[in-house]
Design a protein around this nucleic acid. Structure first.
Lengths: 234, 234
DNA sequence: CGAGCGCTTGACCGGCGTCAACACCCGTGG
DNA sequence: CCACGGGTGTTGACGCCGGTCAAGCGCTCG
């Protein structure tokens, strides 16, 4: 999965009022007065699998609201290896740290087809001090990010390889179709759980053999969850 | 280290204007107008080693600014074991998540003698919408917490036992005396790095034998860093 | 001075990393 | 349409790191 910088990710300008996922996102409870305070365009953007949304240390134009798809946040450790610190899903704010510092702390890469809207920092700074509604939403998004980070550590980086993979499978289950789950490349999964790709592959395979999960495609990405309890107590 | 609930941690009411660590903390750049908006007392509190500041799920009265000492944030995993997700130091906000949800996501326990001031949620909610200065500080504190979480994962939960312990020793070095470092009980250190206490002990001992560090007390808590480079490249 | 807690050290073993071969999917080009 | 090749996933053999169990040591504090 080679990251490719997509020059032309721009897809147009958003009208947030009619956003499909508006109840999930930052602008959920803005009123008309709040919208009138937005004086810069919200850009609509799309990235394919592997697309680079930003790099570690980049100066930020804005923060991104994730409308569709999943994004991995990658840090390169001092010894050169890559560590995936978290993955974000629809409704999450990608690059929220730019609100505090103006630049990004990690690299953000699309794990599948991704749609985001980019909200300029100027809009955020202006609105968040003037609209208590956005202010509150923002607190919730910071909290969501922080809890996501702590959960990631406590759930996926603790215990045996089997326990980690089991938790991962459950964490990545689909919101709408809860008996299905989407995995990633074995190497990415390894970087998320601090395991080698062979170990990940072995654990997944053994769960398939034991009928806890069932493959739904031939690429090892989509599975049906057959025995949730057995996974939980793995 | 058995957590003890300290009934009477209350030590008085703070005058934030004369706070010794004010430049580090939330109220760093408040002006007199801002202070006049504070209509509830800021409580000054102290906890001894092992003191329980709050438990997972507790309803929050306020958030805590850490003025002295260190605090561990502990989560109990589904299988009963304890995981230390982060440790906080002077200037950090303990329990910042309460600003978003009103309750605490983890347990907070003092790792040594700790002094905090408790800022009521009402004060935070009132001030943070009315004072852009506090609003900005708050963004920085959220960012500090989130970056702390990501760093913790990337630095301390990756690589061999030796690498983890080496990073830990460097992370816990003193701000003022940079060749000294304070460790914790081997069990706590294990819970922080996902290692068993015997493994932690072995790695520390081997670094002492190799003269990378030198014990400064007889309890295994205080060390002098002799060869920083060797630790970095461990 | 003795009890108890935490740290250290040793012996052993199992889980996971390492290295390597192979299978499978898919896109490309003959 | 099929041959080929690269990328990804799987599986096996083997060795080592770190977990487990247990003993012993040295503080510290009654």
């Amino acid at each position: 999965m080679i990251p490719i910088h997509i020059e032309s990710a721009w897809k147009g300008t958003s009208d947030c009022r009619s956003c499909g996922v508006r109840d999930l996102v930052l602008f959920a409870d803005l009123n008309e007065d709040d919208f009138s305070l937005i004086h810069a365009p919200i850009d609509d953007m799309a990235f394919p699998l592997g697309g680079l949304i930003y790099s570690e240390g980049d100066k930020a134009i804005g923060v991104f609201t994730l409308r569709q798809g999943m994004v991995k946040l990658v840090r390169s450790t001092t010894d050169g290896r890559e560590r995936i610190v978290r993955v974000l899903r629809a409704g999450d704010v990608v690059g929220i740290e730019a609100l505090a510092t103006g630049h990004f702390d990690s690299e953000a890469v699309a794990l599948n087809d991704v749609k985001v809207c980019r909200i300029p920092l100027s809009v955020m700074h202006n609105l968040s001090t003037k609209s208590p509604r956005l202010h509150n939403r923002l607190m919730q998004k910071w909290h969501q990010a922080l809890k996501g980070a702590d959960d990631w550590l406590a759930d996926l980086n603790f215990g045996t390889a089997r326990q980690r993979v089991a938790k991962f499978i459950l964490k990545m289950r689909h919101a709408e179709i809860p008996d299905q789950t989407s995995l990633f490349s074995r190497e990415d999964m390894g970087a998320m759980m601090d395991l080698k790709l062979e170990t990940v592959s072995r654990e997944v395979s053994s769960m398939v053999r034991e009928r806890l999960i069932e493959p739904l495609d031939k690429t090892g990405r989509l599975y049906r969850i057959r025995e949730e309890k057995a996974l939980l107590s793995a």
